[in-house]
C-alpha cells in the first residue's frame, strides 16, 4: 500500500456478506473504503459482485431476493443498512447511473428536474437554474440547451447517458455511482463521459464500475479488484495497475484470464 496520506473516508464497508436467496454468495466478507473526491473503481470479471455492491450501498437491493446480509456500510459514520435508516434520503445522497441509459418517457428538461419535482420543489427559477447547472456539469448543456423540451428519446445513446448523469447531479448527491456507464457507447462518447468524471470528482465522490480494464486503469484513483464475490486487492490505482500484489490481479489486468 502507498505511504501517501489517505484521503477522507466517505463510505466505510465492514465485513459485508451478501447472499441471494437462490444460494449465490455474491459478496464475501468485503471490507474497504470509498474515498472522498476520488474516483473509486470497482473492477473484475463478470459475476464478481460489483453491481451487487453498488446496489447495497444505496439499498436498491432492498427489493431483490437477498436472503442473507451481514456487515456494515458506514456513510459518514452512519450504518445505512440499519433498519430505520431513511432510504429515500440515502438514495438522493448516493446517485446511481446504470449501464444502459434510462431516460424517463418525458422531455429532457423534465428528466433532469424529475427528482426535484418529487422532492416538492416548485419554484420555476430554481428548477431552470438546476437544469442548467446539472446539464453543464454533465457536459451536455451545449448540445441540448436549445431543445430542452424535446423528448429524451431523441438524444443519442451517449447523450442519454450524460442526461442520466445530469439527472443524478440535479439532486446534488454526495456520491455518484456509475455501473458500466460507457458499455454501450462509442469511443468519443466514452471519452466525454470519462472527462466529465474528472471534472465531477472535485465536487463529488465517485464510485464506478468501468467496462474494461483499460478504462479502469485510465481513470482509477483507487481501485478494487473483485473476483467471484471476494475482494482480492484494493489499492491506489497507480500502484495496483503497475505493481499488483496478488497473482490473480496481475493475471486479470494483463489479460491472462477474465
Amino acid at each position: 500500500m502507498s505511504e501517501n496520506p489517505r484521503p477522507d473516508v466517505k463510505i466505510r464497508i465492514e465485513h459485508l456478506n451478501v447472499r441471494y436467496s437462490d444460494g449465490t454468495e455474491s459478496l464475501h466478507d468485503i471490507s474497504m473504503d470509498i474515498y472522498t473526491h476520488q474516483i473509486n473503481v470497482l473492477f473484475g470479471p463478470s459475476g464478481g459482485g460489483k453491481s451487487t455492491l453498488l446496489r447495497m450501498l444505496n439499498r436498491l437491493n432492498d427489493l431483490a431476493d437477498v436472503s442473507e446480509q451481514e456487515g456494515r456500510i458506514l456513510l459518514d459514520g452512519e450504518n445505512v443498512l440499519a433498519r430505520d435508516y431513511d432510504v429515500l434520503q440515502l438514495r438522493r445522497r448516493l446517485g446511481i447511473v446504470f449501464a444502459r441509459p434510462v431516460p424517463l418517457p418525458m422531455s429532457i428538461y423534465e428528466n433532469v428536474i424529475y427528482g426535484l419535482r418529487l422532492a416538492g420543489v416548485r419554484d420555476k427559477q430554481q428548477l431552470d437554474a438546476t437544469v442548467e447547472r446539472a446539464l453543464k456539469q454533465g457536459a451536455l448543456w451545449d448540445e441540448v440547451s436549445d431543445r430542452l423540451s424535446d423528448s429524451a428519446y431523441d438524444l443519442s445513446g451517449g447523450q442519454q447517458q450524460r442526461l442520466c448523469v445530469a439527472r443524478s447531479l440535479a439532486l446534488q448527491p454526495e456520491v455518484i455511482m456509475l455501473d458500466e456507464p460507457t458499455s454501450g457507447l462509442d469511443p468519443i462518447s466514452t471519452f466525454k463521459v470519462e472527462q466529465t468524471l474528472q471534472q465531477l470528482k472535485r465536487d463529488y465522490t465517485i464510485v464506478i464500475v468501468p467496462h474494461s480494464v483499460q478504462q479502469a486503469a485510465r481513470i482509477a484513483d483507487w481501485a478494487a479488484f473483485f473476483l467471484q464475490g471476494d475482494l482480492i486487492e484494493w489499492d491506489e490505482g497507480r500502484q495496483l495497475f503497475t505493481d499488483p500484489q496478488d497473482q490473480r490481479t496481475e493475471d486479470y489486468i494483463t489479460g491472462r484470464f477474465g
Binding site: N58, L60, L63, L88, Q89, R91, R92, G95, I96, F98, R100, V102, L104, P105, M106, Y114, G115, L118, A119, C164, R167, S168, L171
Partner: peptide, 27 residues
Amino acid sequence: VPKTYRDAGLALGMTRWQTISRILVPA
C-alpha cells in the same frame, strides 16, 4: 417495462408507489 426503469425511479429517491404511478404507468 424494463426493470431498469424501476431502478431508475427508486434511485431518484422515489417511493415504490411513485415509481409505479409516475414511471411504470406512463411508460
